[in-house]
Nucleic acid binder design. Structure first.
Length: 874
RNA sequence: GGGAGCUUAGCUCAGUUGGUUUAGAGCAUCUGCCUUACAAGCAGAGGGUCGGGGGUUCGAAUCCCUCAGCUCCCA
């Protein structure tokens, strides 16, 4: 045999992927067929494939490939995201390494560096996806900063502004002092850290011996205090409300106010209020008309309001002010405390709540249809438990801060024509802006009077249009593509971006097309390592997917990553799973080696083959039904497991063994023809999971005309299952397993033939006995009326079987086996009896349940009788 | 602090409106086999008081309460 003993994936992968591309199988254009659309969650343009992408994209490819085989017009749109912060950070870093600081560059210069970087590193990830076998329509590759895409982002901004949904305002934002930009709430990670709680006393004005002690974790903000707040019901402090106290070190006078917001039990029950540097204090400040004193520069150092600390970093100030407060007698004590601190998702800097002028989208109304249509099931979540989380967020949705102090991204289309913050217009072009500004200002302006907003838009403000804009649905409304492909079918993504992305796509979909962007959202889990840690670059615990593909083959990795990852569950990944996947591809490869080695001869078909074919035909239909059902319910891992077992157990371990001719014996053509047909069907259902080996063997199996490829072959038809052959097989399987047990117990090699006698009327004999003869390697199979002495025996479905072999038999072992079985059956009978003797059960349980218990009782009684008789006979 | 979810074999998970033999699968483990498709394999076996406690019911892994532990989201 000159076929390799193990499957070598690399050659097949290159060959078939190129073939699929050459044939244009992944390219889709609208036609009469039903569309099936998936838009890829666009990875960061300069990103590199990690295990999360592998999981996510393998699932999408499985769905797309199956849809294609089901005859749908499958379209999987790939692309990349410009990823403002992440990409800008990378470019800044790269320039820094070259000794160039961002601040030395003009916006234009920086952007040209950024585009250069994008050209060089952009799209590597898409090439990597090809290695995985992703069947994307590469002719449709999009980028969120493509010209036409940008146009739609800007037009949406303008539209929302005109509808009054976008406003500019001073708000407390999450400020990243390292990236020097505002962040959305979703870009802040809160972590528990060990901190100190400082107890600081403030003197009451004109009362030398009266002090008020507050507790704070941020003493460096004391200089920004504009009030002290206590609970109105707190008896300890009621006499001080309305009085004035002095801010330590600077002796500024601030009032003592009362508000129920204060937690009486935390610290001393007195809260220092710093409206400029804490969101809750900000609200208190608004409510009580307190001034805000901003202490910080953008980079986290103190400004001139910080008195002698001006110019020093906030953390340095915290250390120094502790000493000064101590020396001056203001520090009462410190305590260790664990509190939660916000960190920037991108730079890991400690977030500084900061008042600033930013752009916002007002979300409440926009979110309504997006909430409603998830709750009513128009958009389905898999698993649907995520609906709860989604609802909770959408019902409490906050306005969305969409401006970022960055250069890489879509620049906000607002033009200012004076220094007053309100003097601006929003327009698509500078020319339009000039016209509008002239009108608004009521005086002649020139282009040089206009200054465009420096900020860019949050990345998600472009990605929320992804399912629309990849079909140019906004720039060319109602074009044939958007009408055909939208709404898309399935979205596969991670639950962590449910709000960043999923919710906002839903919002944009209803707002701009009046329709949902997708019908199903499949949430994958997080890929973790064996120790349960999230895979990340910084931990270095993520294997390189490309290495895995080189080691186990793309098919092996695909199986490995899907084999146990139900929707919504985290996936503890270990490369041994890919080994299992590789073994699976090797298994089917060797099944092919076997089948291809047979010589065909014109001869009569063995009875056992006939039985085997009838069985497998029905077994296939049965499992296909399960697989289809699993797919329909988005139970991808289960669909894979069913496929795996059908191939390995049913096809290889049972079917092929049943029809396999003896060594170097020929096979009859009828059996071979059926076998090839089964093999082909099996390859088809394997194809979504293991596309490469399936295509390779599909072509090895038979000569194919050009254009006959499994990637576009029709998914096998479901058909009705006949139960009789399945029941017959189940019976035979039990008998054969018992025979194997006897061999094992008595150390009898498979090669040595056995005799088997069945205690039943000969009329019970049927065609299927031939399978027992073959699989059990029997020299004789006979029917008897009486038990056969000196034999091993077993019972299947109440029928006794005997395998005689005289002196070789191990009497003690046989006795032990019978006793164990007797004990089990008696215990079982007891549990059945306890039900049947319970009057309440008899009265309350439905008839069918009672009847079933009676049948169990009868079966058990019969079995006990047989076992007892056997034991006596020994 | 508020909300959601989870806890079933060594590991990862099924278990669909409570009833189909004293709970299933894959992997791992153990035993025996290099049997001419595959040792990346074959055959067989062992392993769980369904997180603890209480309740509802004729009947609970499944429904309710409670305790404990874990995870995620939000502030």
């Amino acid at each position: 045999m000159d076929i390799a003993k193990t499957y070598e994936p690399q050659l097949a992968q290159e060959k078939w992927y190129q073939h699929w591309l050459d044939k244009g199988y992944f390219h889709s254009v609208p036609d009469h067929r039903e569309p099936y659309t998936i838009v890829i969650p666009p990875p960061n343009v300069t990103g590199v494939l990690h295990m999360g992408h592998m999981l996510n994209n393998t699932i999408q490819d499985v769905l797309v490939r199956r849809a294609r085989m089901l005859g749908k017009n499958a379209c999987w749109v790939p692309g990349t995201d410009h990823a403002s912060i992440a990409t800008e950070a990378k470019v800044v870093q790269k320039l820094k390494a070259e000794g160039i600081s961002k601040s030395e560059l003009s916006r234009e210069e920086f952007l040209s560096h950024a585009f250069e970087w994008k050209e060089k590193h952009g799209g590597i990830i898409l090439e990597q996806l090809k290695r995985l076998g992703a069947s994307c329509d590469w002719e449709r590759t999009h980028f969120t900063m493509d010209l036409e895409y940008s146009e739609s982002v800007i037009s949406v901004f303008i539209d929302l502004y005109q509808k009054g949904k976008i406003y500019r305002g001073v708000r407390m934002v999450n400020w990243d002092p390292e990236a020097l930009t505002a962040l959305s709430d979703e870009e802040v990670n809160y972590k528990e850290v060990n901190s100190k709680l400082f107890y600081v006393r403030y003197q009451v004005l004109d009362q030398a011996d009266q002090w008020l002690t507050i507790a704070t974790t941020r003493p460096e903000t004391i200089l920004g205090d504009t009030a002290i707040c206590v609970h109105p019901d707190d008896e300890r402090y009621q006499h001080l409300v309305g009085k004035t106290v002095l801010v330590p070190l600077v002796n500024r006078q601030i009032p003592v106010i009362a508000d129920a917001y204060v937690d009486k039990d935390f610290g001393t029950g007195c809260l220092k209020v710093t409206p400029a540097h804490d969101p809750n204090d900000y609200e208190l400040g608004q409510k009580h008309n307190l001034p805000s004193i901003d202490l910080f520069n953008d980079d986290g150092t103190l400004n001139s309001n910080g008195a002698h600390y001006a110019g020093k970093d906030r953390f340095e100030v915290r250390r120094e002010i502790e000493k000064e407060l101590q020396n001056e007698g203001f520090l009462v004590k410190t305590e260790d405390i664990i509190n939660k601190v916000g960190f920037s998702e991108r730079t890991s800097a400690v977030i500084e709540p900061k008042l600033s002028l930013q752009w916002f989208v007002s979300m409440k109304e926009l979110a309504e249809p997006a909430l409603e249509n998830v709750m009513n099931g128009n958009i389905q979540f898999h698993p649907d438990k995520f609906k709860n989380t989604y609802r909770h967020w959408m019902e409490n949705v906050k306005d969305w801060c969409i401006s970022r102090q960055l250069w890489w991204g879509h620049r906000i289309p607002a033009w200012y024509y004076s220094d007053r913050p309100a003097d601006f217009v929003v327009a698509k072009t500078q020319q339009e802006a000039l016209q509008l500004a002239t009108q608004k200002a009521g005086r002649e302006l020139s282009l040089s009077d206009l200054r465009q907003d420096e900020d860019v838009l949050d990345t998600w403000f472009s990605s929320w249009l992804w399912p629309i804009s990849v079909f140019n649905g906004l720039t060319q409304p109602n074009n044939p593509e958007i009408n055909y492909y939208y709404p898309t079918n399935d979205l596969v993504t991670a639950p962590e971006i449910m709000f960043f992305w999923v919710a906002r796509m839903a919002i944009a979909g209803y707002e701009y097309l009046g329709q949902q962007p997708f019908k199903n959202v499949y949430y994958t889990g997080i890929v973790r390592d064996k120790l349960g840690r999230k895979m990340s670059k910084s931990l270095g615990n993520s294997p390189d997917p490309i290495d895995l593909i080189n080691q186990f083959g793309a098919d092996g990795v695909r199986v490995g990553i899907l084999i146990s990852s139900p929707a919504g569950n985290d996936l503890p990944f270990d490369s041994s799973q890919c080994e299992q996947g590789r073994n699976f591809t090797n298994k089917i490869w060797n099944a092919y080696r076997l089948v291809s080695s047979w010589e065909v001869k014109k001869m009569e078909q063995p009875q056992s083959s006939k039985v085997a074919i009838n069985w497998f035909d029905n077994r296939f239909a049965q499992v296909l039904g399960e697989i289809n059902d699993n797919f329909d319910k988005f139970r991808i891992s289960d669909a894979l497991m069913s496929t795996y077992k059908l191939v390995w157990d049913d096809f290889c371990s049972w079917y092929l063994e049943m029809i396999k001719p003896g060594y170097q014996q020929p096979i009859d053509s009828l059996t071979l023809e059926h076998t090839l047909d089964f093999f082909e069907r099996i390859l088809k259902i394997m194809h979504p999971f293991t596309p490469f080996v399936a295509e390779e063997l599909y072509h090895a199996l038979r000569e194919r005309e050009s254009g006959d490829d499994i990637v576009i072959a029709a998914w096998p038809e479901a058909k009705e299952v006949a139960n009789e052959p399945l029941a017959q097989f189940a019976f035979n399987e039990k008998v054969i397993t018992q025979l194997r047990n006897i061999r094992k117990q008595n150390n009898i090699a498979t090669k040595i033939p056995l005799e088997l006698y069945i205690k039943a009327a000969a009329s019970r004999a049927n065609e299927a006995d031939s399978v027992i003869v073959k699989m059990g390697n029997l020299s004789a199979l006979g029917y008897v009326q009486e038990k056969v002495a000196q034999s091993n025996s077993f019972i299947v479905d109440g029928i006794e079987f005997f395998v005689p072999f005289g002196e070789q038999m191990d009497l003690e072992a046989e006795k032990k086996k019978l006793e164990d079985e007797l004990q089990y059956t008696r215990g079982f009978l007891k549990s059945v009896h306890s039900k049947l003797q319970n009057e309440k059960f008899m009265a309350g349980a439905p008839e069918a349940v009672v009847a079933n218990e009676r049948k169990k009782e009868a079966d058990a009684l019969q079995k006990i009788a047989i076992l007892e008789e056997k034991l006596n006979g020994l």
